[in-house]
Computed example of a mutant assay.
Amino acid sequence: MRLQRILPFLVVAFFGCATTEDISYLHHRINKLEERVAKTDRRVSETVTEAQKEVGSEVQKVRTDLASLDADIRALKEQVRTLQASLEENWELLRKLSKRLEELEQKKVAKEEKPEETPPPSAVLPPPTAPALAPIPSPPAPEGEKEEYQQAYETFRNGDYSRAMALFQDFLKKYPKSKLADNAQYWIGECYYMRGEYEKAILEYEKVIQLYPRADKVPSALLKQGFAFLQLGDKVDAKLIFKKVVKDYPTTPQAEIARKKLRALP
């Protein structure tokens, strides 16, 4: 130590006047000072070590937190990308369907403006053999309404689609707020479908979807739109419709039928 190196000089400096006891006391004081310095060095070293451990622990904790936040951010970004892709797909679907329905509306107007020629009996096509969907149980309605609705429905079941259509249309005029209104509108679409007028059927099914968006008949109307597009040879729009049925109404019987059709389509 430094104090030990200067000890000979101190001894020489004080030799003439210092006693042996003084020198011993001086050695004792020097040893005590050295012990205090050593203890101070140890305490400083221990304090630094503890501080380093604490800092290291905090740094590790910050790194762990940052890694967790980074993972959360990546997960959120992935969710945003998925939602954005789904939204874009839905917008594209709506755009295509809106365009297709607009084309059908224009064709319907053009046909209504042009007198239809009655084909010879031999040219009349037989009605499609595809069965109509089974009706979903209707909510309670007043007796008068139910009787008129049932009459129209029985007429449909008997195969008189023109008469049934007129009855369902009269029903809607008389009872526009009826709880059976969505059913009546659906069966008007079915009448057109069974007569082979698929474009008109699509437009009537669309009225169910637009006028009664929360009604039980909406999944059936969507599904039958898909079938009507298939009858028109439009597999692209048919597949879009079937996918919408599966996506929007996944647990319904109509969704199961749509899945089967999607698997069967190329």
Rank of each mutant, 00 (worst) to 15 (best):
K114G: 01
S57V: 04
D170E: 10
A85V: 11
G144F: 01
P121L: 15
D70P: 00
D248K: 06
F9M: 11
N158S: 14
L222V: 01
V44W: 02
E206L: 03
V59N: 05
A184E: 03
V59Q: 08
E92C: 00
V245Y: 07
D182L: 03
K39C: 03
A85G: 09
Q84Y: 01
G189P: 10
T64E: 13
P127Y: 15
L232R: 13
K61S: 04
G56F: 07
A255C: 02
L97V: 11
L167G: 04
A51N: 08
L33V: 01
Q106P: 00
V48I: 14
Y205G: 05
H27I: 09
R81Q: 15
Q169C: 04
V55G: 00
K107W: 02
K99G: 13
E116R: 12
A264S: 15
T155R: 10
Y249F: 12
A134Q: 14
D160L: 11
Y205V: 10
K53D: 06
K111Y: 01
D70L: 10
R214Y: 15
A18D: 14
F14T: 13
L10C: 08
P131L: 13
N90I: 08
F15S: 12
K108M: 05
Q169L: 12
R259I: 08
L223I: 04
L10F: 12
D216I: 03
K235M: 04
E148K: 11
F14I: 05
R195W: 10
R263G: 02
A130W: 12
L69M: 10
P139V: 14
S178M: 08
L125I: 13
Q84V: 01
K224Q: 15
A166S: 12
A13V: 02
L76N: 05
T155M: 11
F15W: 11
R43P: 00
F15Y: 12
F168T: 11
L26P: 01
L167P: 00
P8A: 07
T47F: 10
I257H: 01
